[in-house]
Nucleic acid binder design. Structure first.
Lengths: 336, 336
DNA sequence: GCCCTCCGTCCAACCGGTTCGACAGACCTC
DNA sequence: GAGGTCTGTCGAACCGGTTGGACGGAGGGC
């Protein structure tokens, strides 16, 4: 059942049906009614592939995710769900493409087969080859996270350096003198993962300004690693009284380690950082932390992308978000 | 840059290029080499929409997910990632379509616009309208979870009734006499969500067989609810010494409630159930539980779907998985 | 040398839409 | 009543692939 069938039954030409549907040229009321009746009766819907071919656009976005093997964090999952949601408000579909590892076939297929109108990249490295690939292919894209040259593309990100700085000041104001940053994994840092690097430098700079003694550790994205990591911290720097973290996956392990060490939060030890809000609230006690506004970021990313698709030559835009630190109950005055 | 351009530069007709690419007819070695050179030089890749239109298939699957507002559980997330992964091994792309709430436009668009070759449905209700819709549209589909009439479609599921039964026997063997099932939310049960209903009936039947006193409660999919729910259990049935659960989201709250009540696991209280393996291991202590094999299920679902797409008239097949209970450390002998 | 086969290639139709230019007829104007 | 505009519709080209039938030429059998 195609547009020709509808045209035949309504006694008009194919183009008239097309115009009736798109409204791009006027159609008499009587004809429109006849056409709509036939369409309703037959349950006709235009074939998406044919339309995409003719229009030169697919009404589809690609969301490039890290491969499943590397488990997604809560923040990342928030992005996926929210991007799909935001795209739906523009009547766009979302194609999920793994990239990295041996999954670059999917990425290539999507990029080069004109399968989508635009791409949203997440888990961006400071110098990301996929960005170069998309630029070369001149396919509109927006990144969640940003590469080193901030003017080179459209992006949305949270200002990790600034948020971590605020965390440090918050702890300093509470009297803490020895603090530690629990970062993401070694591998990510080595690969040039922006948030990890920006968090680290923001942390050290702010600690320096306030005259604090600061240490940083990398911790694999797993609960068990969080436990081991904290025990190492206690062993190497027993004087530390507060931690800042951006490693969500390590939180359960961290929690267990704290209990195991008999430390009360925030009585004996304070914790803060940049964390998905939902996760911060399920910590015990709820974490004082900057919540990553995944939903807002996803919405912004999709809006930026839609804009770029409409006008690929417009200047790049970006949004650097700095959500307030939500004061919950995991930080307190130092009294050891 | 299209197939005509390649043909021109290689000095052959468009069809020859097509045949060289698909291998559906023999092409002389010399011609093939010339064509491949031009293709490599220009970085040509066939336009996916045009190919889809001509071939009548899109090489794309749709994965229908619950809307983002209803947060995805860990098990569900495992499905999404694993389905994408499994589809990639068949060189298929995955379109993510929210359904339910006000997102049925996406579902309709995908189903009726011939946008995909097949659909994977998750979060199936015992009597799911989407199943009927897909049948009517005669679009191949596979469900993760199964509707009431098991022969009506192809599906893969875990045998919740059986697994919960095993959990009950396990607890009974340990001497527990009063147990409770912490189920998913009221709404899901009311909507006819299969796992919740099958878990419940399996639980009650098994408890009856073993002569145990059994209670069931529904608990919203949130940590806070888990806490409240456990406190209610302690209040209403203080004699209960063990819980079985399929509610992952409630686990953190449950954990907090146990600590708050000063209960040692498994010394004072045992917990088991059907849970994503990763989550079971991040509980403290690690949960003795049947791990939902999300990866295997996703792989099976994709395989079944690919099979159905190839031969839509083949009889329906299904897989009902019964993973062993992984013995960890959250269950012990009753001694109160 | 003739006929048949087979191999490699080409032409043209087709998939199902969109869109541009043309045009018939109604209506207005002078 | 001739000429001009406006409205609604149609025909045909086009998007970029795939595919079936036709066809020319090389090679083999007689």
């Amino acid at each position: 059942m195609n547009i020709g069938e509808i045209a035949k039954r309504a006694g008009v030409s194919r183009s008239t049906v097309s115009y009736a549907l798109s409204g791009k040229r006027p159609v008499s009321a009587a004809t429109a009614r006849r056409i709509n009746e036939v369409i309703a009766e037959l349950g006709y819907r235009p074939n998406a592939s044919a339309r995409a071919l003719a229009e030169g656009r697919t009404r589809t976005l690609s969301l490039v995710i890290p491969p499943a093997s590397r488990r997604l964090t809560d923040v990342q999952l928030g992005f996926v769900a929210s991007v799909v949601e935001a795209a739906a408000t523009h009547d766009l579909d979302v194609l999920l493409s793994p990239s990295g590892g041996d999954h670059d076939r999917s990425f290539e297929r999507v990029v080069t087969g004109r399968r989508v109108d635009g791409v949203i990249l997440m888990e961006i490295l400071l110098d990301d080859p996929r960005v170069a690939r998309l630029e070369q292919e001149s396919l509109p894209f927006v990144t969640i996270g940003h590469v080193e040259r901030p003017g080179a593309s459209s992006w949305v990100d949270v200002d990790y350096a600034e948020l971590i700085t605020r965390c440090v000041h918050h702890l300093a104001d509470l009297g803490h003198r020895d603090i530690v940053l629990i970062n993401r994994s070694d591998e990510l840092v080595a690969a040039g993962y922006g948030p990890a690097l920006r968090a680290s430098s923001g942390f050290l700079t702010a600690a320096g300004q306030r005259g604090l003694t600061a240490h940083t550790v990398c911790c694999p994205d797993e609960p068990a690693a969080g436990l081991a990591c904290f025990e190492e911290i206690r062993h190497r720097w027993p004087e530390v009284t507060a931690a800042v973290t951006i490693n969500e996956a390590a939180l359960p392990g961290l929690q267990r380690a704290l209990r195991h060490a008999g430390l009360d939060v925030p009585g004996d030890f304070s914790i803060t950082g940049v964390i998905a809000g939902r996760l911060a609230e399920s910590f015990h006690p709820p974490l004082t932390a900057a919540d990553v506004p995944a939903e807002e970021m996803a919405r912004l990313a999709v809006d930026l992308l839609v804009e770029r698709i409409a006008d690929p030559d417009a200047p790049h835009r970006h949004a650097l978000l700095r959500p307030d630190i939500a004061l919950r109950s995991s930080t307190g005055a130092r009294h050891r």
